[in-house]
Write a protein that binds this DNA or RNA. Structure first.
Ligand SMILES: [Zn+2]
Ligand SMILES: [Zn+2]
Ligand SMILES: [Zn+2]
Ligand SMILES: [Zn+2]
Lengths: 165, 165
DNA sequence: TGACAGTTGTTATAATATAACATAACATCC
DNA sequence: GGATGTTATGTTATATTATAACAACTGTCA
């Protein structure tokens, strides 16, 4: 079992790694990771729990950033375009992407107990989707794949795992 | 290639079949398919294009039904609980289910050109999801699987297929 | 009849997201 | 450096989607 969002880990490493990746990627691509964009990304990465736009907005407001909805939605749009985060449509919330170098559509496990999301990298799922689409002559552009349930940690220790980041 | 939402077909058959199924299922289950619930289901089945709650509400209002949001959301909740329709989270819209006898989570192909949705019944997809979840010790409760792209009809005849129901 | 569960009506509001236009910051070229 | 075009941000208002809370009605059954 590899390390996941669900299991205890050094989350500060997740954060610094995500920000470092974001900075170098944006530099490579000639796009600007402005203060508000970087701060939104940091806020998204505060935990593995997807966070809502208005929750981000409240956090930004506390820190003296501009706090009208377009501010955060623009930052989210930028970060999403750069593959630095994903939106989870089933809960209208946003989560950081661990692998932004190669643009992709994510597949997610979403735990209803601890509210954390784990992105999957399953070629099986992609293949299964492709086979189904091909059977209908359907050309895939993007997808929303969200598996909602209970993570191993929350199955094993029902009341503790909500606390780890 | 089987008949799908995307290809031309006798859609009145889809509608009457859906309503008949709904009536007998509700009778079996001892739940009430009241006039507003049945009308919402008929409106959802007017086409294979998923329809939004407020669009339904406007249609109900024209017909003299009560036209406050709770009316339509309650009907949608009931119909969803009975497995008679599905919500597509990626577009906040609702589409009829062809196979309401056995409760299930749908997988959907969603064409961005003609806006029609086709539900899939792919055991491959379910298996791929289960394998990924099992690898993480994750227990699946429900899922959102929506594949967005272009259907065969819209690839073949880019400007006509928007018109069929 | 009265009690009860389920359903619908009604008003208000929450939660999520975008339109539209003004201003500011940055880059580039002369 | 100043003119100019582009990108980013500020600001106000509004659109879209969904739910809370409570009152009134309807059917069922003792
Ligand atoms: Zn972490
Ligand atoms: Zn969990
Ligand atoms: Zn049809
Ligand atoms: Zn199409």
């Amino acid at each position: 079992m590899q390390s996941t969002a669900f299991s205890p880990h050094d989350h500060s490493h997740c954060i610094s790694s995500a920000i470092n990746h974001a900075q170098s990627l944006c530099a490579q691509r000639g796009v600007r990771l402005t203060p508000v964009r970087q701060r939104v990304l940091e806020l998204v990465w505060r935990s593995h729990q997807p966070i809502g736009a208005y929750e981000l907005l409240a956090a930004l407001a506390k820190e003296g950033f501009n706090s009208a909805p377009p501010t955060v939605y623009r930052a989210l749009e930028f970060l999403s375009e750069q593959g630095l985060l994903h939106k989870l449509d089933s809960i209208n919330a946003y989560v950081g992407c661990c692998n932004p170098e190669t643009p992709h559509q994510g597949h997610f496990l979403l735990c209803q107990v601890c509210n954390k999301a784990q992105e999957l990298e399953s070629q099986y799922i992609n293949l299964a989707l492709k086979v189904s689409a091909d059977q209908h002559g359907f050309e895939i552009q993007r997808h929303t794949i969200e598996i909602i349930g209970t993570c191993k940690e929350c199955i094993d220790k029902p009341s503790l795992s909500e606390l780890t980041p």
